[in-house]
Amino acid sequence: MPEPLLLLSDVHTHIGPYHILHGVDFSVPTGELTMLLGRNGAGKTTTLRTIMGLWQASSGRIRFDGRDITASATPDIAHAGIAYVPESMGIFTDLTVRENIVLAARSGPLDKTRLDWILGLFPALKRFWNLPAGNLSGGQKQMLAIARAIAEPRRLLLIDEPTKGLAPVMVRSMIEAFKALKASGETILLVEQNFYAASALGDNVVVMDDGRIVHAGAMSDLVADTALQQRLLGLSLDAHQ
C-alpha cells in the first residue's frame, strides 16, 4: 500500500512542564477527509499545532509526503503544502474580504479560475467582497479563513473546529462546502465537536483522549455503533440530529 500523505509515529509534545501528547500514532490518506475527534482538552489542537511546527514534538516522527518534517520550521511546512486554519480563524478584520484572499496567494497573483471556484464554495464572500472582514458574521469569517487557506493549491488542509458556535443553517452550509472540497480531491484533517457534521463528512476518524489515540477506523463504523460513540465521546449521533 502507498504511504499515507501524513503519518504521525509515537509523537510526544511537551508545552513547558506539561506533557500533552503521549505517543500519538495515526495517518491521513491522500484525497480523503479524516476527522480528529475527542472531548475538550483531549489534545486535538495540540496535535494540529505540532504537525504545523508551531509546537515542536519532543519525540517521535511526523512524515508528510514521504518526508520527515518533525523538526521543520512552520514556514517550511507551509511551503511544503500544508495549510492550517486555527480555531481563532486568523483573518485580518480591518482588511476587505478581497484583500484577505489576495494576501493569502503568496506565490503571485490569484488565479481567476481558482478564485471563481472558491467563491462558488462560499457565495457569501462574493457579496461582501469589498467590505471589511470584521463586518462578517462568525460563520462568514470561518468561510473566509478556509478560503484563505485554499487561495493557492495545498496538499493538506488542517482545520480546527470550523462549525464551533455556528447556527444550524450555517453548519449545513459549511458541510456542503466541505463536501465540495472533498469532491475536488482535497486531503483534509478536520477537528470537529459537532458529531452530526463529522458523521456527514468523515471518511476516516481518529479519536483522542488525554493526549492519546484511543480509536481509529472508518467513520461509517463509528456512526453505526452508538455504544462506541458513547464510550469514546460521551454522546451518540441520535442525540445530535
Rank of each mutant, 00 (worst) to 15 (best):
G60Y: 00
I213N: 15
R39C: 14
A177Q: 05
T96H: 08
Q230W: 14
S58T: 11
L144D: 01
V191I: 04
M52E: 12
P86C: 02
H14W: 11
G108C: 03
D25P: 14
R154T: 09
M174N: 03
G134Y: 03
D111Q: 04
K182D: 06
L166F: 13
V171M: 08
P17L: 07
S58N: 10
R231G: 12
I20D: 08
T113V: 13
L232M: 00
L131W: 15
L158G: 04
G120V: 09
F128N: 12
E99I: 05
L158S: 05
A227C: 08
M1H: 15
L36A: 04
D116R: 11
V28Y: 02
G120Y: 10
V206S: 04
E87A: 07
K179T: 13
P17S: 09
A80P: 12
P86S: 02
W129K: 03
L48S: 02
G165Q: 02
L232C: 00
R49E: 10
A216G: 15
S88V: 14
S184N: 07
I159Y: 08
I213C: 13
S107I: 13
E32H: 11
D203M: 04
I69G: 00
L136H: 00
G53H: 04
T96N: 10
L95R: 12
G139T: 05
T163V: 11
D221G: 15
N194R: 06
D76M: 14
V11F: 03
L228Y: 10
I146S: 05
R212M: 10
R172L: 15
V11M: 02
K44T: 10
T74Y: 10
Y84V: 00
V191D: 01
A73W: 11
A149H: 01
P153L: 06
A57H: 04
G234W: 02
G108K: 03
G60D: 01
